[in-house]
Design a protein around this nucleic acid. Structure first.
Lengths: 133, 133
DNA sequence: CCGAGTTTGAGAATCATTGTCATCAAGCGC
DNA sequence: GCGCTTGATGACAATGATTCTCAAACTCGG
């Protein structure tokens, strides 16, 4: 059976408290900074579990895994600022349909897909090019 | 200036000779198995270069980078068998448009996107469930 | 409260990838 | 063809994220 320990709760809450994608390492540092004596391995395990249970989304960037608490429970994708990490959840039924159709057209079963859009958000665009004129 | 060494050529050819995504390690083993005394670091460097020059596609899976020679030069996506790695290149202008539209709708600039579809190809489906009845 | 079975955590271990640096060789000018 | 300059190579160390190990601590059902 799955047990409810304060460590798991702490990870869950720490994740819920941010709206950007974080690495396990960063979340661990953050927790330690807040005075929690949680172990690194535990953070990894908790995040992996959350991701598996669908309570968190994960993506790979620059060789590390990043996690984020899911705002909406269902399947969705992300629009991520490549500069500040701010993330917007987006739904795209058209994409789901397209992926399923494409897979089927080539005889592939059990289609899964990775669809993420990266860009520079307004705030970061403004910060990087302060009124160039 | 960029020099043309037999090592780079070997990597390029080894990649062109396969139609699935391979890891740098696997490609290195493969080359060594064919009698080439090429070094691992060199394979990594060559693949990174090829990817940067747009001659190879790369994607992250299970914590490692996989590479594949590009059949079509332009922008495209992949339909990948999660069991055998066989890959089909797919084009999806609709997706490009959707990604651009979505990014713009949220004020994001310079949209880039990651779109890959995974599934189990016919051959692998057949192999894994040999006439279950 | 008790006992069984999970979970934790410190540190070791793993694994892909990158850096180091002495040596090698591609392409230049001659 | 000859040498030279400089980027490329490769054996190995170093890095960095993630996972494993295993004894001790803890959760939950009874």
């Amino acid at each position: 059976m799955k047990r409810r320990t304060w460590q798991r709760t702490a990870v869950q809450e720490a994740l819920a408290g941010r709206e950007d994608f974080v690495s396990a390492q960063a979340l661990h540092s953050s927790l330690r900074a807040d005075g929690s004596p949680i172990g690194l391995a535990t953070v990894y395990r908790a995040l992996a579990d959350l991701a598996e249970e669908g309570e968190a989304d994960s993506l790979q960037a620059e060789g590390e895994s990043l996690y984020r608490a899911c705002a909406s429970p269902g399947h969705h994708h992300h629009l991520i600022c490549r500069s500040c990490g701010r993330t917007v959840e987006i739904e795209a039924d058209d994409i789901e349909a397209w992926a399923a159709r494409t897979a089927a057209a080539h005889g592939f079963r059990d289609p899964q897909h990775v669809v993420d859009v990266f860009g520079t958000c307004e705030a970061c665009t403004a910060r990087e090019q302060p009124m160039r004129l």
